[in-house]
Amino acid sequence: MYENKKYLAIAWILVLPALLIRVFTTIYPIIETFRISLYDVKLLRGINEFIGFQNYLNIFQDSKMITSIKFTVIFVVGSMIGHLVLGIALALILNMKFAGQKVLRTIVLLPWAMPMVVVAMASKWAFNNEYGLVNDFIRWFNPSFKLDWLIHATTASNAVIAVDLWKDLPFFAILILAGLQFISSDMYEAAKIDGAGAIRSFFTITLPLISKNILVLSIFFTMWRITSFDVVYAMTSGGPGESTALIAYRITTEAFTNLNTGYASSIAVVLFLIMALLSALSMRAAKRVDY
């Protein structure tokens, strides 16, 4: 018993430095962010006044923040619908047996391997009306087509969602493909003998067997979408106006542009609580997955 306690004490001593570093770099910033959110901190004006939960109430009275919340919801829902529909379709294509299958899988992953900032900056030029790749392609079918994608709120929002989808769709599809690899071909053969076609086999065999994978992936990808920042920062800078300013981008502008750190901290705390809830849901869903 003494020896066990001795080894346990040694283990704690060895682990303690890592734990202290973790506390300092993770727990302390969270606590400090919550503390600052209770103050009216405006660095430019030299204001540092305790105001309680007023910053949290201001979130729902700020028209710019309301716009950011609305676009974040549209961005997350639109992007995830695209990931689910197109990701599953792409995974099914990649799961087929054909010549050059491995080469195609490698090519498909290239967009995901590129940094989002690089993709967003390139997309900013691609959606240009005069010399953009997107309009050039459309003009093959409609020579008189003209549209400045990034100066109109609706088209700019659609462009941001499209770029995000193009960037991460391959990774989502590859993860779905991994689930498809575990489905035995004997099940499809038995369904074919029973007279089931490709569509019926998909809805009765494929989809039920990968539904748990889709659920877990959807939760994690939703969390990543909510905290997206770089695509808006590099592509539209939240414009036109504030129509494409995601919540994470709003936190950055409030903290580092407006130097309104108290208000920015309150937004960050709300976002943290949302992410904590989604993390709990993802862990609960992961436990239900049969590996």
Rank of each mutant, 00 (worst) to 15 (best):
T257F: 14
N58A: 04
I174V: 13
I36C: 02
K146G: 00
E189W: 01
A11N: 05
M235D: 04
L8G: 10
I205F: 09
T106W: 00
L20S: 07
L90V: 12
A99Q: 06
V117H: 03
M283L: 15
T25A: 11
D186W: 04
E130M: 06
L86I: 13
V269Y: 06
F202C: 04
S237P: 00
A9R: 10
K146V: 11
M275L: 15
F75L: 04
L43T: 00
A248K: 05
M65Q: 09
L14N: 02
M116N: 05
G132R: 08
M235I: 08
V23Q: 05
W149T: 08
G52Y: 04
D62G: 04
S184T: 09
L259V: 00
Q61N: 15
G87C: 11
A285R: 09
I27G: 03
Y131G: 08
L20E: 00
K6G: 09
I10R: 02
N58F: 01
G52E: 04
E242P: 05
M235E: 08
T33G: 13
I174N: 02
F50P: 09
L14H: 03
F203C: 07
L84G: 10
P111E: 01
E189D: 14
Y28K: 13
A153Y: 01
V108P: 14
M96A: 14
I226T: 06
